[in-house]
């Protein structure tokens, strides 16, 4: 097992290398550079801008720029933001990453806490009223784009009902202790549920189907034939088998959540990595784009590795050696 994990982690290195090449190329392929998108003071002479470009290294050939970036990243230096003058990339990213982590974990929690009980209930009483409602909700959840669900949530729960704030992470800077915590949670609710909507729908359907399939298997008949009660058959013998693919999928989910957060964060004006990422792309702030992208890539790779490890833990038939 440890050998397997080490091998997988070593495989990350060439994969990440390839990812950076592709993303660097794509970012450079977009027209313009960090200085061209601004509404510039017409009094700044063109030579000054040109000097600035020269200083940032933007006039070097792209492979040279990439090499400069890569060699400093290799020693742990992500460089300076080209847009927010004077701020290091590491500083920008760390100021945002916790917010995104909270949001993703909140969405993941919503997914697990909503999808698993409803999925089980739907399979226990298939074709019941609740099952049909859950199915309808699932299809709506899958068919509604994230940003649209976000707008609807803001309209109803923020503007009409006024239950939850529609943007940001805190309402005032003066809060401390428990009040601060509650305020944070209140700000997480709308973006968190919006972000978790699609995956909740998927997991609910997935678990329902898995449960129904396992219920029809021979070993469930054996379990009933030995006189186990309905709850033991359902929660021990059926659920344990039905959760195998679900737990595996959860590993992948984390990477998906982080990247999905980009759009949700933008709609809720939530100061996380996602909004920073979008702004950086608009500003062609190459060092920030690359840093966030590396974080996303690492999360997805680690998520996939976790999925494989979970798989071996929950299913005794899987062994990596």
């Amino acid at each position: 097992m440890y050998k397997y994990i080490t091998r997988r982690v070593l495989q990350f290195i060439p994969m990440l290398f390839l990812v950076t090449i592709v993303v660097y190329g794509l970012a450079q392929a977009a027209p313009g550079d960090p200085l061209s998108g601004e509404i510039l003071d017409p009094d700044i002479p063109a030579e000054v801008l040109e000097e600035r470009r020269e200083a940032l290294g933007l006039n070097d050939p792209i492979p040279v720029q990439y090499w400069n970036w890569l060699s400093s990243v290799a020693v742990g230096d992500f460089g300076q933001s080209m847009h927010y003058t004077g701020r290091s990339v590491a500083d920008l990213v760390t100021s945002r990453i916790m917010n995104t982590l909270y949001l993703s974990l909140f969405a993941l929690g919503v997914t697990i806490l909503v999808a698993i009980p409803i999925g089980i209930y739907s399979s226990k009483k298939p074709y019941s009223l609740l099952d049909y409602s859950a199915t309808t909700f699932a299809f709506l959840g899958l068919a509604t784009p994230n940003f649209f669900a976000a707008l609807i949530a803001i309209y109803f729960f923020s503007f009409q009902l006024g239950w939850f704030p529609s943007q940001g992470t805190v309402s005032s800077v003066g809060l401390t202790g428990f009040e601060y915590f509650i305020d944070k949670i209140r700000h997480l609710i709308l973006p968190g549920f919006t972000l978790g909507l699609a995956s909740t729908a998927i997991y609910m359907r997935y678990l329902r189907t898995e449960m129904l399939e396992v219920m029809g298997s021979d070993f469930i008949r054996t379990a009933r034939a030995k006189g186990l009660g309905p709850s033991s058959v359902l929660y021990k013998h059926t659920l344990r088998n039905a959760l195998i693919p679900i737990i595996t999928l959860l590993g992948f989910e984390f990477g998906t959540l982080l990247s999905g957060a980009v759009i949700t964060e933008a709609v809720f004006n939530y100061p996380g990595l996602g909004t920073l990422f979008l702004n950086s792309i608009q500003n062609r702030d190459y060092p920030v784009i690359m840093a966030i992208n590396l974080i996303l890539a690492v999360t997805i790779l680690v998520g996939n590795l976790l999925a494989d490890i979970f798989y071996a833990i929950v299913d005794p038939r899987i062994r990596y050696d």
Binding site: D218, F219, A223, R224, A225, G227, R240, I244, P316, R317
Partner: peptide, 20 residues
Amino acid sequence: RGNDVAMIFQEPMTSLNPVF
């Protein structure tokens, strides 16, 4: 079931729960 009357099935390959 299992106490006064027990049953043995045809398919030993699939009649046992794989995860226990």
